[in-house]
């Protein structure tokens, strides 16, 4: 048995937002009588953590604790329009809509607080913990709860805001291809270390080391979830997955998880990553979409590492043991490389 090790790299970028734009999303925010804030959306959380990220963005702008933010989604009767969760657009589009709505709601909140404290709203600041204070005057403050109660029961005012984000649609020039397809680009560089068993054709991914540039890590724990889960999916695409193993022949398509191959808990590599932040001019707090990108960079890195290990190129995904063995056999007959 011969096990050969190799290392490969890849560097990629990934566009944020629906290709060519024209994909709006909205948010509505209102305060309850007791100073909690309901963010109403029609956006979908696929498991990537949309509700959590939107909570943090709303809390940041409103200047209140995340615990006092309630995300209400997705019901088309009550929630304003959202184009959907795809194309790494959710954080960017919905996040921006929430910033707009929360800014309006915050201004309404500070107006009421200013009247209660008899100062101009511009002289107020929030502490992010549920209080609104007069800048530079220690002790002169009001709780968000009291401001919300006063707004409702004393002034008869709503504390609310409306937000929408739209990147206007770009229409490509079909002569030259000129267009404005995206809002910003995230970046990744991945190094894969693999071990190829030249007798079985099996590839073991030992380690994936990556650097990701994502604009702003709004929640580092969610970022990490995307990195680890996405890297796994990339590895799975590189080595295992297809619904048509003999493409373009339609025969022998897998119909269940026993036949549709993916790496299991025994097959996972070591992960290591660093995060870079170059805030995007258009992103919420500079954030870019990263959910999709994390699955992309491992694929060519693994393919390049396989070549580095055993000197054969497989240019057809997935790189299965069968393809690898055939290529190794052919290379053994022909002179190497």
């Amino acid at each position: 048995m011969t096990r050969l090790r190799g290392r490969g790299i890849s560097a990629v970028n990934y566009p944020t937002g629906m290709n060519l734009g024209g994909d709006p999303s909205q948010a509505l925010i209102h305060a309850t009588t007791t100073g909690n804030f309901v963010v109403t959306l029609s956006s979908v959380d696929l498991g990537q953590g949309l509700r959590t990220i939107m909570t943090q963005i709303a809390a940041e702008v409103l200047g209140v604790p995340p615990e006092s933010v309630i995300i209400d989604t997705a019901d088309t009767d009550t929630g304003p329009h959202c184009m959907g969760t795809f194309a790494s657009r959710a954080t960017h589009r919905i996040g921006n809509a929430i910033i707009m709505a929360a800014t309006e709601a915050r201004n309404a909140l500070l107006d009421v607080a200013g009247e209660e404290l008899e100062v101009a709203a511009a002289d107020l600041e929030t502490d992010g913990d549920g209080r609104i204070a007069v800048k530079g005057v220690p002790g002169k403050s009001i709780s968000v709860l009291d401001a919300a109660l006063a707004a409702h029961f004393k002034y008869g005012r709503t504390i609310s805001g409306r937000g929408i984000y739209l990147k206007p649609r770009s229409y490509p020039d079909f002569e030259t291809g000129a267009m404005d397809p995206d809002s910003c680009q995230a970046h990744a560089c991945t190094i894969a270390e693999v071990e190829v068993d030249t007798e079985t054709g099996e590839v073991r991914v030992l380690k994936l080391t990556s650097a990701y540039e994502i604009g702003r890590a709004l929640n580092p724990m969610m970022v990490e979830q995307q990195i680890v889960g996405g890297s796994w999916m990339g590895m799975s695409h590189a080595l295992y997955e297809t619904t048509e193993p003999y493409y373009p022949d339609r025969a022998h398509g897998p119909v269940d998880f026993a036949e549709y191959l993916m790496p299991g808990p025994a097959d996972i590599p070591q992960y290591d990553a660093v995060i870079l932040e170059r805030p995007s001019a258009s992103g919420p707090f500079g954030a870019k979409g990263i959910g999709e990108m994390t699955a992309n960079s491992p694929i060519p890195a693994i393919a390049n590492a396989i070549f580095d290990a055993c000197g054969v190129r497989i240019d057809e995904l997935p790189i299965t043991p069968e393809k690898l063995l055939r290529a190794l056999d052919a290379a053994a007959v022909a002179p190497r490389r």
Binding site: R51, T52, T55, Q56, A59, G63, G128, L218, N219, M221
Partner: peptide, 12 residues
């Protein structure tokens, strides 16, 4: 930032 950038456990 106060809320943004925190490794808040997911609310669900």
């Amino acid at each position: 930032f106060r809320a943004v950038g925190r490794a808040l456990p997911r609310i669900d």
